[in-house]
Write a protein that binds this DNA or RNA. Structure first.
Lengths: 232, 232
DNA sequence: ATAATAGTGTCTTTTAGACAATATCAC
DNA sequence: GTGATATTGTCTAAAAGACACTATTAT
């Protein structure tokens, strides 16, 4: 069967992208939230997002929103589709199908609030998870966090949180912040340096405070982590 | 920033669901395809799908399409969102955002062609992957297959391909068909029977032809597979 | 020297993978 | 009996996890 036989439905509806953008600060994982300056959900926090243009791909809309909110170009951050949310009534104005994207970026500077009424801020993850976000964004955020946590296990995604050059301790910090656990520095070091294609040794080192200087690496071209790193 | 400040875009656009429905036959994995009876892509094969109703959730639309095409209710099959596709021009009629779903079901009978011009059939996976599907369905199918293959590694999804009661050999057949590889029956047996919550022993056995009768199991309530089963 | 962090080596436990051996059926 | 499939046991290699030890810095 399939309704493909019939004309497309033409009732009023809109398609939007919403962004779950994570960055890593000294004190842990943070997510980008805006405070809404208009109804609905006036003054409530929400994930950044916007409507998809008539001639725009979904990926392009997500990349545009990311750039508008953070100044990042896609090449500087990881950006992938998360999933779509379309319950009737999730937006009280009209039917809105939202395609959520997950973005990961190295430590970013504070966002300068735009000229409009909406202000953006990097919110610590525990605070953001406490609830009260606009629309169904509590669930979108939870789904985005779980995706990020899961992908660290079997992919090299963690390097997306790191700057161009980073140490093994930096990379370990990503896992510890996103998973909220502690990892053995020695076993972690052996694991990641032993994974082919994950790290490229720059030959240089970096010294931060006391202790032996750490070797500096760049991200290799490996995408998958095999065997994976398993969470408890 | 964020366009949330502005009114929803109201240009003509539609939201559809497309289904990647896999089932397992004696001769291997098959996917449900329809032959289109109308333009665009007249007489081309396509994934089954249809437009989302004004007051319908995305999940409900997918479940409705699955029922219309196969007679299955969701409880009898696994159904999960895959991802969304929204490139302008993917449907020549108008802007269509399609939310694709992945469905897995035990061996299903042939589909009786509906009263409309579209006929549905279970197509062997190799044949379906050969290309030439309508819209961007070649890519959707490829994404769906990769999702199914990946999820077998770290989830108990394989039991969704099995009937109510099944043997370890049945379950192994799922992995071999979906992955297209051979697995050692002895190591596989030790692995799955040693995973807590995966299999529930019914106490009965089933004898098919020669050989020792196999123990019959039902699916347990475990969702994840830890440690995972790794593909080559 | 002492404290701190980086990195290596070693040992034990767990798991994967190869495969021998046994169990129970059809014929 | 033979041949087929199911199930258990055994061995080896790889990997995880605990942790002693060495290396190199700041103070």
């Amino acid at each position: 069967m399939g309704e493909w036989q019939q004309d497309p439905a033409t009732f009023p509806q809109a398609v939007a992208v919403d962004l779950v953008v994570f960055t890593l600060r000294e004190d842990g994982l943070r997510v980008l939230l805006v405070t809404r300056g208009v109804d609905p959900f006036l003054w409530r926090r929400a994930l950044p997002g916007g409507f998809v243009g008539p001639d725009e791909t979904l990926d392009a809309a997500a990349e545009r929103e990311l750039r508008e909110e953070t100044g990042l170009r896609q090449v500087e951050a990881h950006l992938e589709q998360l999933r779509s949310y379309g319950d009737p009534g999730r937006d009280p104005r009209t039917r809105v199908i939202s395609v959520a994207y997950l973005a990961l970026a190295p430590d970013l500077p504070d966002v300068t609030p735009g000229s409009d009424a909406a202000s953006a801020a990097w919110v610590p993850i525990d605070q953001a998870l406490a609830g009260g976000l606009a629309f169904d964004h509590d669930r979108v955020l939870a789904d985005g966090l779980e995706r990020a946590r899961a992908k660290l296990e079997y992919s090299t995604l963690a390097t997306a949180f790191c700057p161009e050059e980073f140490t093994v301790a930096d990379l370990r910090g990503v896992y510890e912040a996103v998973w909220g656990t502690g990892l053995d520095p020695r076993n972690f070091h052996r694991k990641v340096t032993g994974t082919p294609g994950l790290l490229i040794d720059t030959g240089r080192t970096r010294s931060e405070g006391p202790g032996r200087p750490a070797a500096l690496y760049r991200a290799g071209d490996a995408v998958g982590l095999n065997p994976p790193l398993i969470r408890d």
